[in-house]
Design a binder for these strands. Structure first.
Lengths: 164, 164
DNA sequence: GTCGATGCAAAGGCTTTGCACAGCC
DNA sequence: GGCTGTGCAAAGCCTTTGCATCGAC
């Protein structure tokens, strides 16, 4: 049966993690593999908080302490394997770094918090252009569009309170 | 002498604040006026953390407790007079809401934290288009470009660690 | 005069850190 | 075997909240 959902999570070569770690004098540990494997399992579109990573690993019988989750998320982010999202309304979240410089953006409903992802080539060009003009070297472009989703537009229309 | 720097901070009519507050059953207090006036003084491009707002008010001999600063920032944001930024690397910051749907973006150096602002029409179009496709109503578009500034590129080039 | 807002201090999350032990290289 | 990582618990931010008092309406 090859009906795997295949959420753009090509089963990454495990040696990449090991080599990246060794290059920086770090070690390949089961905990680090578990965290990265979790993100690969859920696909590169999903974002998890440290707490969620911890909970999911516990559910899967994979024992990793919360402190180590925090340490690992920071490490994997600094290595570029994960990236931190800046979604509004609190809560740092992480997701798998997609293909090099994936141009992925978020449409966030400020009322209910639901998010959609989308891509746009023009945005990446704009970011690249800004970097060039200022002499910066581009790492990543993230567009956050704050908006009201279909369900929330009517609810917010009467009340002046847009951002609950 | 009309050589005022004029950072797009048109001296807002104070009655706007009072009316907005009253519409929601809130009161116009000196503290709320002080916080909003501070943001108007520094212009709509600058972003401050709660702690910074508190410090600046203290320097200006304007006594407001830190708890009230937090409460006021939240209130003014919910009223749409301020907006919260999602800059990376921790720290919630607030800035004056500019002219309706100002298309302002941030170029952030992930190493030293310095930020530049820029504008780009294509980004706004991309955000608007995404909203339309998903049936969302656009509130705001913020592009965050994570990059290395000129000073930091050489420092990060040798070391594989990009995001200190 | 009423009811919301403030200030203070204490409580609350989330995240980091110190330390002894475990385990990768 | 050396030195990095881990787990645990304690400490550290930043932010929110309870409560008595103050003050806008």
């Amino acid at each position: 049966m090859l009906l795997v959902p295949a959420p753009s999570a090509e089963p990454r070569d495990p040696s990449i993690l090991r080599d990246s770690l060794h290059d920086r004098g770090h070690r390949l540990t089961p905990q680090r593999q578990r965290v990265l494997a979790l993100f690969e399992r859920i696909g590169s579109g999903s974002h998890l908080s440290a707490e969620e990573v911890h909970q999911r690993l516990l559910c899967d019988q994979e024992r990793v302490s919360l402190a180590t989750v925090y340490r690992t998320l920071r490490l994997l982010s600094s290595m570029g394997l994960l990236q931190e999202l800046e979604l509004p309304e609190g809560g740092r979240r992480f997701e798998l770094t997609g293909d090099a410089h994936r141009d992925h953006h978020h449409l966030v409903c400020v009322r209910c918090g639901c998010t959609e992802e989308f891509e746009d080539e023009a945005v990446l060009r704009a970011g690249a252009q800004a970097c060039e003009q200022q002499g910066f070297r581009l790492l990543e472009c993230v567009l956050t569009v704050r908006a009201l989703c279909q369900r929330c537009v009517p609810l917010a229309a009467g009340a002046p309170d847009l951002s609950c």
